[in-house]
Design a protein around this nucleic acid. Structure first.
Lengths: 185, 185
DNA sequence: TGGGTCATGTAACCTGTTACATGATTAG
DNA sequence: CTAATCATGTAACAGGTTACATGACCCA
């Protein structure tokens, strides 16, 4: 998957591994984290497969750099991937794995767990809302408003997702309190 | 992570690898898929670490089986994991990765993409609603209503999540149509 | 006679994580 | 003086996926 993320970014313009890392951090980070070590490794694989090309640029005062660009074959691969059947709409969830087995710990402790989670999600959601403004600005500065639209969609997803979890946490706390009242039924 | 899922199941009672696989399929499957190959491998690791024990049961007419049970150390580990700081509330998302780069394909195609995704999520959501009834039945048959509560919560999460994506898809289609009207602005 | 259930696993592979290593320049 | 930025990677490990292998019994 990271391979296609890298191809997607290189499709916007040529970049070094370091710049790819930075762009990942600034825009895709909330739904996909990329380590430099993995980026450099995947770039090698992409080059072997002919999806990207690179050239070395010597610099003074800074380390030399290797600038990568997407090839026509790489662009084909990117499109193929975009048209692949969607399978990832049921993501693996660590939260749910933990909640499922929460019968093992005390209701009071679990109530705290949900409250803490809710707090984190709300905070994160607020950060995303400010990110939405940032995306819009960025899009205007850039010429490509059409492409920024999709970035906006991902941020909107994040916002809705955090809101959903927050509501769900509330319902979970409610369920726990209800169960508490019926002890011994 | 799968290790703790297995520990969680064995905490309900002793099981073979095959039964663990079945239980996974019937209850955790929508947020975590487990291959048999991985289950058997993780069981070996858990045994090496002293978190589970096994005994061999010979059978006639069927293959012999190896029944696993959780040890006190394993139970401790399960609790430790449940109390770990929650980090997984921003899951990696394949959907968002694809949407982010969708500027590369045509708006009309992308509109179809969102509609198809919405349809899938709605269908899946309906299946989860019927699953909710199934969980409640199962819980009554089982003595442990308290533990079933957490199962119910995970199903409720799934239902809300599917609804959220469905709403989001609608908003995305709306955004695309709006952008279509402003071509050339 | 063909597919499903019970029941076990191995091997190779792919992807992501953690830890480490280097080294100059520049801004506070 | 110290921390951040630029810029590159390697090595080992952890976790998940795909493909393969075996074999009997039971039901339609």
């Amino acid at each position: 998957m990271l391979k296609h993320g890298i191809l997607g970014l290189l499709n916007y313009g040529e970049m070094t591994g370091y710049e790819i890392m930075g762009t990942f951090r600034d825009s895709l980070n909330f739904f996909w984290k990329a380590q430099t070590s993995q980026i450099y490794r995947e770039l090698q694989v992409l080059r072997e497969r002919g999806f990207v090309e690179d050239r070395l640029v010597e610099q003074t005062g800074k380390p030399d750099k290797r600038i990568f660009s997407i090839t026509p074959v790489g662009r084909e691969e990117l499109k193929r991937w975009l048209r692949e059947e969607e399978t990832g709409f049921q993501p693996r969830s660590e939260i749910l794995m933990r909640v499922f087995f929460r019968g093992e710990t005390e209701p009071a402790e679990n109530r705290d767990y949900f409250r803490a989670l809710q707090k984190e999600c709300r905070e994160f959601g607020r950060n995303l809302i400010s990110a939405e403004g940032y995306v819009r600005e960025y899009a205007e500065a850039l010429e490509s408003e059409y492409k920024a639209l999709y970035w906006e969609m991902t941020v909107d997803f994040g916002r809705r997702y955090m809101e959903m979890i927050s509501d769900w946490c509330e319902e979970c706390v409610r369920k726990l309190e209800e169960a508490d009242e019926h002890i011994g039924d």
